[in-house]
């Protein structure tokens, strides 16, 4: 079905960006996370729940960062007059990202792709720092900040989805970034709940 509405290169790119996010989701979801225990000999961080959550979070945020760069790249290409994923079907990221009325942040006038790029970079810094030093004094603050930022991201996602509904077009790359934000929220939320508990020290 997907291949019928998207060209092959777009599909391959989406798979490339979606894979780390999917893997991150599986590491974060409580009922799939434990299945990665079998890989703990090869990846020692998978031995604990905290390690799996942080690994999943890092992977998800890396995927989100990469797909945000891609959307910013499409934004720039469309402004040059090029086509990247224009389509007559509902799946047309060119129409969404190239829509001058909706493709920048209100007031600041920054492209949404750049907003995502900067946000995912900052979140990855938080997540990566925690995974390197889980018992640091700043860990709790970083977890709070990550949870707050990804929660606020839900509002931005709501706004952007409302634009897509208005345009009757769907941007696949934007949706992938939105999914990464939701998965990251789940990761930060669980880690925040665990912090200070026995499970954090296991």
């Amino acid at each position: 079905m997907t291949l019928e509405v998207l060209d092959l290169s777009t599909t391959l790119l989406l798979i490339g960006y979606g894979l780390p996010i999917l893997l991150g989701l599986l590491l974060i979801l409580p009922f799939t996370s434990s299945s990665f225990l079998a890989l703990s000999e090869r990846f020692p961080s998978f031995a604990t729940k905290r390690g799996r959550l942080l690994s999943g979070l890092n992977l998800t945020l890396l995927g989100g960062l990469a797909v945000s760069v891609q959307t910013q790249w499409i934004h720039a290409k469309v402004s040059e007059g090029a086509n990247f994923c224009a389509s007559d079907t509902i799946f047309s990221c060119d129409d969404v990202i190239g829509n001058a009325q909706y493709n920048t942040m209100p007031i600041l006038d920054v492209p949404w792709g750049m907003v995502g790029f900067v946000t995912f970079t900052a979140l990855l810094f938080l997540s990566y720092s925690i995974s390197k030093e889980p018992n640091a004094t700043w860990t709790k603050n970083f977890l709070n900040l990550g949870t707050l930022a990804t929660f606020a991201g839900l509002g931005v996602i709501g706004l952007l989805v409302s634009y897509e509904i208005e345009m009757e077009k769907l941007c696949q790359f934007c949706t992938t970034a939105h999914i990464a934000n939701v998965v990251a929220l789940a990761g930060f939320w669980q880690l925040r709940s665990m912090h200070g508990e026995k499970a954090w020290e296991e």
Partner: peptide, 25 residues
Amino acid sequence: SFLKISALFFVGILILAFTTNPVAT
């Protein structure tokens, strides 16, 4: 961590800078 993540960020910026020539609206 800051150095490593910043490096990733600048790789992204470099990709955008060298492969696009955006026209402002």
